[in-house]
Design a protein around this nucleic acid. Structure first.
Lengths: 237, 237
DNA sequence: CGCTATGTTGATCCATATCAATAAGTGTGG
DNA sequence: CCACACTTATTGATATGGATCAACATAGCG
């Protein structure tokens, strides 16, 4: 694999991540000494579940899908976007990956040797604290996701997904789907056919989907149906 | 609430937990200075989701159910047994609990003020490392659980649950259910009625359930059906 | 003991998956 | 730039896993 230099602007982006922004320059350099960067085309497998976790991955451009397989079935676990890290827990525990990862678009990935991450963790208390914060947040995100899956029907999950995305906007109740519908379906725990029908069901609550463009005409109405709540739908805590 | 002294044997049990066993005596004492212990009857609510996380909980006797609610529905997220901690992530992030907890039997709980946990975390690198390990393990456990839920049918989940429990035994393919069936059903993501039928279905694979006693007559056969795999069913990594 | 909660079984309903056909994009090479 | 191939999305028909409702059995527990 061709090893590329990390661009200065890129390094700055990564350093701005909460995981890295408080650490000493010395620690940061120690982390990046063994790092390398690569550009990947779409639909390239980056990691396969079960493999040893040699690198902490940081995505700086593009998008990556985390997915899992069992007995011939496959499900989307998450989609990762810049700038963020993924598979931190496996790196920390020096344990095999539980999920596979593939690029969805042309993507740029920084690879930090896991051994360096563990090394710096041991010497830089600020970094240690940041890793704990990050892990605790990831843990809580997965718990929220489990509640979402177990307590809601597929239409309710879709309704809340839509609300979460439009509310992030600038007041205009519209947004663009950031992934293919079939991946969204898998992420939400349903089939593509079922997603199509769920969208139709939500038309009754003022939701219109044209291609990737989602518009909510009556946020009140959709909210009354979806009943979003912080302990499931707020990804910031 | 009556505040009780932590018994020496109990303190030893807690110190033996991987989370605490490497830390300095000084740190350990700092953690336990503000600690208190309480005995609770069965079916007492210990914490309610949404509440601020004032204490890290350690269960030393009994059993505790972690559950979540939304829109009038309730689901069992996990059952906690001695000696282990729970709601570590909320404590670390100083964020509201995502799950509620109630005692299932008479239980003894040690409460460590969250503020002390965060304080000692900042000063004791061994403790910091242990917390990270614990959190990473918890994170991975929830990911495994999500894979279990999304990739398997309810009968498959039950089959793997049974295998996981009998294989922990002494070679004899039998074990006792550690919780009521309705809670097991909820944990596995199904209704009690459905669990009854799932058990019947597994009779065809040599599973017999009499009360709480589960016997597997043909582990080979059940394994062939359940297809357990480390990346979902092994809780140790 | 008898009450109350839990568990089982049966009948039925509903949500979601599956199968199948078509339509609509999307990318590729001539 | 268009035609073709291929993937994705939609729609309809049907099957099925699982939920719900109801009745009854059973087991804990005061």
């Amino acid at each position: 694999m061709p090893r590329a230099v990390v661009k200065p602007t890129e390094e700055a982006d990564i350093r701005a991540l909460s995981l890295f922004n408080g650490m000493t320059e010395e620690s940061f350099q120690a982390l990046f000494r063994g790092a390398y960067v690569q550009n990947f085309p779409p639909m390239i497998d980056l990691i396969t579940e079960g493999d040893p976790s040699d690198f902490l991955h940081v995505i700086t451009h593009g998008s990556v899908e985390l997915f899992a397989e069992w007995n011939g079935r496959e499900t989307t676990m998450a989609t990762v976007r810049p700038v963020s890290t993924f598979i931190l827990a496996a790196t920390i525990r020096d344990a095999p990956y539980l999920m596979s990862a593939r690029t969805l678009e042309k993507s740029r990935i920084v690879l930090l040797p896991s051994i360096d991450v563990r090394e710096v963790f041991a010497t830089d208390p600020v970094f240690a604290r940041a890793i704990v914060d990050e892990l605790a947040m990831c843990y809580r995100a997965v718990i929220k996701n489990t509640k979402n899956l177990k307590l809601r029907t597929s239409v309710e999950r879709l309704a809340n997904f839509i609300l979460r995305n439009v509310s992030n906007g600038d007041g205009l109740a519209t947004f663009e789907l950031s992934m293919e519908k079939r991946r969204l379906a898998s992420f939400l725990g349903m089939t593509p056919e079922n997603l199509s029908r769920a969208i139709k069901t939500l038309q009754g609550y003022g939701v219109k989907v044209e291609g990737a463009q989602v518009t909510v005409h009556d946020v009140e109405d959709l909210t009354a149906f979806a009943k979003p709540e912080a302990l499931i739908d707020d990804y910031s805590t």
